[in-house]
Design a protein around this nucleic acid. Sequence first.
DNA 1: ACCTGAACACCGTTCAAGT
DNA 2: ACCTGAACACCGTTCAAGT
Lengths: 225, 225
Amino acid sequence: MSKKAPSIRRRRESLSRDRIIQAAIELLDSGGEDGLTFRALAERLATGPGAIYWHMADKSDLVTGACDTLIARTVQDCVGATPEATIRVLALGMFDAMSAHPWLGAALASPAGQLPIVRILEPLGQQVCALGIPEDTRWAAVSALVSYILGVGGQNAANGQLARTRGLDRSEFLDAVATMWSQLNAREYPFTRSLAVRLRTHDDRLDFLTGIDLILRGIESTRGS
Amino acid sequence: MSKKAPSIRRRRESLSRDRIIQAAIELLDSGGEDGLTFRALAERLATGPGAIYWHMADKSDLVTGACDTLIARTVQDCVGATPEATIRVLALGMFDAMSAHPWLGAALASPAGQLPIVRILEPLGQQVCALGIPEDTRWAAVSALVSYILGVGGQNAANGQLARTRGLDRSEFLDAVATMWSQLNAREYPFTRSLAVRLRTHDDRLDFLTGIDLILRGIESTRGS
DNA sequence: ACCTGAACACCGTTCAAGT
DNA sequence: ACCTGAACACCGTTCAAGT
């Protein structure tokens, strides 16, 4: 995008880690986890599978790079008026990123995602410190936030992948799950059945935020002790 | 194990869904997620890959069955003196199951895990109801608990898989992570660096329980509102 | 230094053929 | 009804060979 070389044919730019990772993200976005293949990636980059191995160690390196790029983008410039507000913004940013890239939740839960997770662990930890939480409960607070965010993300990813496999859109899928739940044995599964109704109308994003607020309240209640 | 046919050679019991799932669990336990293969499974059951397809729909069916069997075992007979105590027992049971079967966390976060998750959703939901939480915040409460449990499980699974790949035992692995964290840029990653020390000595199970208690306190603080 | 593409050792899944 | 095992269409990864 620089203006230095105005009308050079940019079709044959040489391969680079960044270009490869960008192409990997596009493949993941359009085809899910199974869509990322060395052969498909090579084709998209107009080269052979072997060329990619010159720049990337292996498939795990590819996934780590994709996660890292997206999380870095999500986390930058997240600020709110208070520590609580910033935590909410960070959490919502992750939620939205995982919604926009349904493979992200699963990838972060894989070994390849462990390094990128540090990028979200750090700012959350800083905000928890800013909340004035005593040192011995800081880890529990941050761990609860991170695990909750990743847990919700993983669930969304799994549901999205399930829906895609069956060729359903979001509301069709929710309807299918709701129907399945409402057919569960009434004596064994009263609670899950009672959720079935709620499922069709609920707002994922709002529910997610409610969960964050719940954890924040739990965190703040430890401040005095 | 019945006594009906005392000395029949039990080597050639015919295939069944249960026997296949049991073998699948053993394979997953010993070889991780990559260890479960139709060919390896067939060999262990002294048959061909095709035979398994007579009893199971596909690999996803295999994984769902394995998760379902383990969760059902974990959840049964979980009772405590109070709803809070029961929730703790349920959560710890899941934590221990995911520690004993390191592939379980990842499997539950995959599409194949969505059905088995209902088995843990239900008793948690029932206990949250028993806590007297108003209906409109029940879902947030249960969702926070389930997501947290699955999130922690997923992280443990990812770490375990990473450690296994590099042939490290638990303390060697923690040491490696702690070292990596302590080498992060001091200005960008002060919080993560401060965790590095703690990491070598912390108790996963205890930290997990602290997180559960944190969420429980958050839940209880909504009871009045 | 960087790329090519055939080849290797695997997968999940299918299916004609057997009993 | 249940099982066999060869065959198909893929994978990730390697590596001699090119430029």
